[in-house]
Design a protein around this nucleic acid. Structure first.
Lengths: 199, 199
DNA sequence: ATAAAGTTTGACAAAATTGTCAAACAAAGG
DNA sequence: CCTTTGTTTGACAATTTTGTCAAACTTTAT
């Protein structure tokens, strides 16, 4: 009974997103995705032509959403410091819903040179990156952060935010953290990260 | 002509290591590995029984080597600061030869709960971790690093070291870095990282 | 009510990949 | 020289997974 039209398409995407980005099951087959979505496997092909195209699409959409949110965050705030704080908040929020998104991107990029180029050009298109690097440089001149190549500041920021999420499964097991505890620990990092980044 | 006995076994491991950890080709098939090693595919099964067992073995060996090197580094140095510096050096050195090792571990862990437990228990076995956390705590008391949960310091350290390597392919493309330039940039991070970690 | 368009299904074919096995081969020791 | 042991090979079977297709089914609009 086709009660709700192309809601099926949405169901499939939702299921794939959850499997990949929330549960980290990167090898999930079309069958598993279909099962999770509660639909027939063939519908994955009907709506997305192929498994890989489904992958591409949800990745592109996830990145687009993130881009928008960051764009907004960075533009509304006034001071550089406030921008970074907002950036951290948004990044962490996403990390809680999609803890495996970063890992997924990184691994996917190594498998496929085409995809690599697509992601890169997408990133380059946005002026946000250049503006951000300029902001960093200005801030170094002001003396609120250590003197260094602006790109180094960017890498430190991303690393401090992203990596704890990437290694989450390892650390949770290692230190016997529950989901809740790990989340608390990540939240506590905000102040620590700010202290490291600013003089 | 079986000129050199079980050198074949070594050739296979070397090829697999290079494919996985140096080139990041995690999905390499037994055929690809055999080709890279210049041997018949069936020999992979002959020497390692199955593809997964080959994976396990080279991962275990890589970790064992790293453990040894870190153990040595941490025990020889006197001051905490020197220990960290040595740690950074060794970590970076490994990162240059096996840039994908960290990513590999992280992704592998999500796929297989068995493997997960094995790695964790291995890590726990070593007293190094506990000692290191104790060292951090002592250092906080001394006041050379900011007041925080010792585990937070550990996470920051690992993140600042590991993540720039993990996102290497992305960043290299994004900023048009050559291998050489990226390596230089990573090396320049040592001082930056130290400044962030110590007051 | 019916035709047209869109959706869902099960069956099928194709591709990719793994592991096994017996036979061929090489090396080494008696 | 020949037997034993270890190594290498190609052929084969089994498995997993993907994508296609025609037929069945719904929905919507005429």
């Amino acid at each position: 009974m086709a009660v709700k039209d192309s809601q099926t398409e949405q169901q499939i995407k939702d299921a794939a997103r959850k499997l990949f980005f929330t549960e980290g099951r990167f090898n999930a087959t079309t069958q598993e995705i279909a099962d999770a979505a509660g639909v027939n496997r063939t519908l994955v092909n009907y709506y997305f032509r192929s498994r890989d195209l489904l992958f591409d699409q949800i990745l592109r959409e996830a990145r687009a959403t993130m881009d928008m949110r960051l764009e907004m965050a960075m533009s509304t705030e006034t001071s550089f410091r406030k921008k970074i704080e907002h950036f951290i908040d948004i990044f962490m929020e996403q990390a809680f819903t999609y803890p495996y998104l970063d890992t997924y991107m990184v691994t996917r990029i190594n498998e496929d040179v085409e995809k690599q180029n697509e992601i890169i050009t997408d990133l380059k298109k946005t002026e946000r990156l250049k503006n951000f690097l300029r902001d960093i440089e200005a801030e170094i001149k002001k003396g609120t952060i250590e003197k260094m190549e602006p790109v180094q500041f960017l890498i430190s920021l991303i690393s401090l935010l992203s990596h704890p999420v990437v290694i989450q499964p390892l650390f949770k097991k290692l230190f016997q953290y529950s989901d809740r505890q790990y989340k608390q620990m990540l939240l506590a990092r905000k102040e620590i990260i700010l202290k490291m980044l600013f003089k």
